[in-house]
Design a binder for these strands. Structure first.
Lengths: 244, 244
DNA sequence: CTCCGATGCGTACGACGTACCCATAGGAGG
DNA sequence: CCTCCTATGGGTACGTCGTACGCATCGGAG
């Protein structure tokens, strides 16, 4: 895990040494915001909500963070920082193994914190641990005859795939949980009648097959589906390496 | 392009035949909302804003759409409907060509309407044209010995990759445009000093190389980068096909 | 002890999503 | 033709949001 001092190198300095001592910490704020987002979604992690969650006034967080977007960056970096033990032993000597581990780590993060994918894909993401992750990944791709742009491109492909696929897995799992449990009527998805009308219209034969012929234990082996697709992607990358 | 009547099969019926005749149309609302989102981002396409844009009152849109989320679904489907000529001639006899065209179409849509990727990845997306797109894609994967789950999985892999990669391209292009044009000081990215501090800290050698050694015309050939990565992915899929 | 800079936070403004209600338009049935 | 009935457009209102601004207060530096 990166040093706690890394938090000093943030968009704003943690402590300045002058004036009143802060009553909260960025890590504390991030943890509270993460808890809210995990339980109720990213949009629930608002400035005011997180502030009241830690017992602070509505405007107090602005001493630690400039925007709501910066709060979300803080949360995103903190999540990765808590997961850092999985990354600390990278890169592997084998570049394929490095990419595999990176992809599986990202997938696990998205499944654990679904809002994380939203922040990671909405725009460029910065933070000390994020940068360290990029550095580790690129280090694992060094010495293959790729220049820095190509290395970054390969890393981005894996990153995009892993986060996007995991996000899709999460949505599928949620949809199945919502349709399967009719007893939990509180989260009955409102698009069910529309999907029914679609498959009854007869104009979408393949969509109909997807809905009706889907194998039930779809989620149990989603991990191996992910790994299989990842293997295909890595094999494709290996095939176009310079010294292959 | 799908029939305009397809709009009738929507989450709510377009016209009921009784009572006062509607003064607006879903297509009109969607077009206005798309214009706003293209110009100022998805979060600017609010209920009130779109309503005033078409000269309606704050609550009038709720006669055409149930939620803000449903407005975004409407926009998303309308964008695809306008792009439908590119899809109407699919599927190709060659499944690889079908996937290639699908991926390139999705990429073009994301680059033309960056907010589109956000809606497509935030949750399950429905709509008549979306369903048709899924149907066409799955039709292109029929007869390869895959069951419907595997066909859907292959399509999702390509879809996830294309949208995610295009979204990343867009962010990279925006970042480069923002840093390159210092004259347009209105959109000076606020993370520049942080990135500078990161590469000056010396702790992130590869990030430093990415920032300093990046080849300038990064965006000109981003299309071929996309196509190369897509080719890798398709080759990987082809290698694991049943009758290969 | 004094000072001064940073902190915590109250107030306030505009924008948001949307629940609720009502006047109204305009085909359907007479 | 008139009447009725239903769906429409929209006004009002409530709670929440991000955040600009200002002020009292705390506590280390001098």
């Amino acid at each position: 895990m990166p040093d706690q001092d890394d938090a000093v190198i943030w968009l704003r300095p943690e402590v300045t040494g002058r004036g009143r001592v802060p009553g909260y910490s960025r890590a504390q704020i991030a943890k509270a915001a993460i808890a809210v987002a995990d339980a109720e979604g990213l949009e629930a992690a608002s400035m005011r909500r997180v502030a009241t969650e830690i017992g602070a006034g509505p405007m107090s967080l602005y001493r630690y963070v400039r925007n709501k977007d910066e709060l979300h960056l803080l949360m995103t970096d903190e999540v990765l920082r808590q997961d850092w033990p999985r990354w600390a032993t990278m890169p592997e000597p084998d570049w394929e193994q490095t990419l595999r581990r990176m992809a599986h780590n990202l997938r696990a993060l998205v499944l654990a914190h679904p809002w994380w994918a939203e922040v990671m894909t909405r725009g460029p993401v910065f933070g000390p641990t994020i940068m360290r992750m990029v550095d580790v990944t690129l280090a694992g791709l060094d010495g293959l005859g790729l220049d820095i742009d190509e290395m970054m491109d390969v890393a981005e492909i894996i990153r995009t795939f892993a986060i996007g696929h995991a996000q899709q897995e999460h949505h599928a799992a949620r949809a199945m949980a919502a349709t399967g449990s009719a007893d939990h009527a509180n989260m009955a998805p409102d698009w069910i009648p529309y999907v029914m009308s679609v498959i009854e219209s007869g104009e979408y034969p393949y969509v109909r097959r997807v809905v009706l012929d889907a194998s039930s234990p779809h989620e149990s082996d989603s991990g191996v589906l992910f790994d299989r697709a990842l293997g295909r992607l890595i094999a494709g990358i290996a095939a176009t390496l310079p010294e292959a």
